[in-house]
């Protein structure tokens, strides 16, 4: 087994080109290996010292979040909390303080777990992934990136270096809520993110809803925007709940039955729409929504 510490992005990409796998926080890779899920790769390149990937930058068109940005950074960063609140909601719910301190957004995205918390918020916020390899860069839509549980369309030599988010329209809000059985060290049973933009009359101008842990990947509720547009948030939330339950393809496992997941993902979707609309209307709802207004075990 070999382990190399990359001193620069180019070194990291060169290592990937010859078969190494990247390791950042290791919260999925190392824990998974310990639990016997998958052995550690034979060759690892550590990217945790690549400071250039650890920043959140404001750009001409939106923001760029470096792949090494941790969940702890995301949950308190003012740009994220004020403009991309659903992502802060999700980051604040991940694992424990130590997981959040060391686990990175790039790692969460590329681990491609259908139960990942940051995925649904990124999707409704219109995020794209920036992939780099020794041969060049490309931009990938998240819906094209995630192909199955733990699977992405990225080549093995490609490294996710950043997530780009477009600017937020005026009178927009977002929220991520998840079903949880306890208040810490929890994993999503189901979860839902919503982004909502309001018209001046308080009806919904447009938006999006995405779901966690009810399909092989994070999925978007395709017709959510159409269902919400022109409606007041209450009616929109009810319509989205039904649509979310319909589009869900959950499995039965230890954490919940498919029937229960299908029902509760609708509940989460409605609550996400409600919180997102209230935030869009200017209401201050703290991060994470689960703690602020009460979802499941939280209030």
């Amino acid at each position: 087994m070999s382990f190399a510490i990359a001193g620069s992005l180019d070194e990291a990409l060169a290592a990937l080109a010859v078969g190494a796998r990247p390791i950042a926080g290791g919260t999925d890779l190392v824990v998974g290996a310990r639990q016997g899920k998958a052995p550690l790769p034979a060759s690892l390149v550590a990217i945790d010292r690549l400071d250039e990937l650890a920043h959140i930058e404001s750009r001409d068109r939106g923001i760029r979040i470096g792949a090494m940005v941790t969940h702890s950074q995301l949950m308190i960063d003012q740009m994220i909390v004020s403009g991309y609140t659903a992502l802060a909601d999700a980051a604040a719910l991940v694992g424990s303080p130590s997981t959040r301190n060391i686990g990175t957004l790039g790692g969460n995205v590329m681990n491609a777990s259908p139960a990942m918390d940051t995925g649904a918020p990124l999707m409704v916020l219109g995020a794209v992934a920036q992939l780099r390899s020794a041969r060049g860069s490309r931009t990938v839509e998240l819906s094209d990136l995630w192909t199955g549980p733990g699977q992405t369309s990225a080549e093995t030599e490609e490294l996710c270096v950043a997530i780009d988010l477009p600017p937020r329209p005026a009178r927009s809000g977002s929220a991520y809520v998840r079903l949880e059985y306890r208040r810490a060290m929890e994993i999503a049973i189901v979860g839902a993110a919503a982004s909502v933009t309001l018209a001046d009359d308080g009806t919904i101008l447009g938006g999006a809803v995405a779901l966690s842990a009810v399909a092989p990947t994070i999925i978007e509720v395709d017709d959510a925007g159409a269902l919400m547009t022109g409606h007041l948030p209450d009616a929109a939330a009810a319509a989205v709940a039904t649509a979310a339950s319909d589009v869900a393809r959950p499995i039965s496992d230890l954490r919940a039955s498919d029937t229960y997941r299908r029902h509760t993902v609708g509940v989460m979707a409605a609550r996400a729409v409600d919180a997102a609309a209230r935030r869009a209307a200017g209401e201050e709802i703290g991060v994470p929504v689960n703690r602020a207004i009460g979802v499941g075990a939280s209030r």
């Binding site: 059985y181 306890r182 208040r183 810490a184 929890e186 230890l254 075990a297």
Partner: peptide, 15 residues
């Protein structure tokens, strides 16, 4: 089926 703390859920201090 759940011999681990991820799916054998103890209460935490936060609860």
């Amino acid at each position: 089926k759940n011999p681990a703390f991820l799916d054998y859920k103890l209460q935490t201090m936060a609860d």
